[in-house]
Design a protein around this nucleic acid. Sequence first.
DNA 1: ATAGGGTTAG
Length: 683
Amino acid sequence: MRSLKDGLAYQARAVKSGFVPSTFLFNQLIRLYSQNGLLREAHKLFDEMPQRNVYSSNALISAYVKARDLTRARALFDSATERDLVTYNSMLTGYVTVEGRESDALEWFDEMQSMRDRLKFDEFTLTAMLNLVAKLRVQCYGTQLHAYMVRTGNDTDKYVMSSLIDMYSKCGSFREAYRVFCESKVEVDLVSKNTIMAACCREGKMEVALDLFQRLPKLNDTVSWNTLISGYAQNGFEEESLNFFMKMRDSGFGWNEHTFASVLNACSSMRNSKLGKEIHAWVLREGVISNLFVKSALVDVYCKCGNIKYADLVYATIECENSFSTTSMIVGHSSQGNMSEARRLFDSLNEKNSIVWTALFTGYVKAQQCEAVFELLNEYRGNANISFDVPIIICLLGACALQAALDPGKQIHAYSLRKGMEMEEKLISATIDMYFKSGSTEYAGKIFQKLTGRDLILYNIMISGYANHGHEDQAMELYKEMLERGLKPDEVTFIALLSACRHSGLVEMGEKYFKSMVEDYKIVPEMDHYACMIDLYGRANRLEKAMGLMKKIPRNSDPVILGAFLNACKINRNLSLAREAAEQLLVIEEDNGSRYVQLANVFAAEENWAEMRKIREKMRGKETKKLAGCSWVYLENGIHAFTSGDTSHIKAEAIYSILEFLSADLRVLPNSSVGKITTLTLT
DNA sequence: ATAGGGTTAG
């Protein structure tokens, strides 16, 4: 009676002939039905059989435990007339494996301990308990179990030994795991080898894992391959992971859901959408698409590659609540700036971990929705369980930088110092950038002075910070310093340097940097670099140079370039050229309302009112809701915001008259004094 | 003699 078919046929014959099978045969049938997922039928047999013994109830209890139905398992346990160690072990396994019942498992074990005189632990009890410890990651429990094993001579079973290795590894003690593996009295078998390989992968020791894999090729199975593939993917060796993925099939091992999940993770890290789609096709072919891990991995690949549409198609097929893929979707939507969708999914999560919080913070900062960032901050504070980690602090600093909010920025900086956060590069960079963007070059400079490790990003922030505040000399000084330290400038460095030149009208210097960028560092200029140069020429009243450069730009119909050129023409009062540029811009971006405004403004400057009116007519319905440029100051009684032409401020009249004085002064003052006017006193 | 409980890859 091996197969379900045999069993059913046997039962049918028995029923027909009126023969009542023995308890032994009933038990066989219960096991057979359970193994084939026919739990109700198995239970019915159990109820109808004339004589039950401990094997009958044990068979059914273990069937319910495997189906993770602890309620029914427990009910059977309670009503059982006879119980033995197997009965207790089965329940223990249930509490260990079912999510969220770990404390019940501990209580159950205590209960078993209190019956020590009648109940002796065996290797099944120990494997269950070692699995629990591995799950809870409490090594001291594990060490006690290990000691018990040694004392009672229970350290010769291969199952227990594998679990012991796994427990030490998952508790973070690779050394202990490796020692158990090496000193084991049991012969190295396939599972213990796979377990120690997985431990090596967790520890990042890929050479050791590979060595084990290659040294005992007879002991390799699908799990060994998958362990290696996943290990490479998780330790940043995506290429290796893919190599072994291909080799696996060539060696005659079939891919399964574990293989696909791992290799898809590699695709995520590589942001390789094309490969992800290819593997998606394999997944469909192999019929493992229903697996939750595979689905989550696919969702993650598409999200990381920015393909929200595909991600959503897979995500929609996930029926049960799956926080992993919801997290992927939140991260995906946030990175694409779809903040309302990200927020909707965020709200749908029962438990919010620090990854989703960070994703939402990052998304709002990226979308420049600063109010949303600070609202989220208040919500976050309401969650007592979580503390602020470094990524969130970086986001908050970013939001402060966007708002030029010096005081909140200082508070966050202080918080990171108080908590003794490790001042890693990203955090330092974000802090310094915040101080620059909030107008405090002094603080930014002070922090920078104390640093010994200065990387490229930091120099870029410093150079552009000084450039934006009119400290060109310091920007260029720092550039020299970074070269002396052997750092290689990148495209961002040159944007910063060129804008320093742009602000101070240093045409020759700008040209020198531009030339050096192309010739010394082989950086192909981007549109922003060209736009910077055009602007530099325009502001320095060197329109002929701007025109010369326009001819050399490969894609000079780019809106950014044309916009800069248009501006240069306007500054130099070359209205016919300005009009040409504005008209061209309008052709490229006919749906962009602000292009109409630009062209209309040129006509207005020409005092060509008829043409201007025509443009205004055409523009109707295409107005963009562009936010007006706004600046603000923090004074003791709150924030004072200013937009162009705004007269709503209570002291508007006074402000405007002071502004008039200042503007009059600005015209006669040399350029270099502009940066020195930093405060406006309102009385 | 016999039936029931356990290990590794995400």
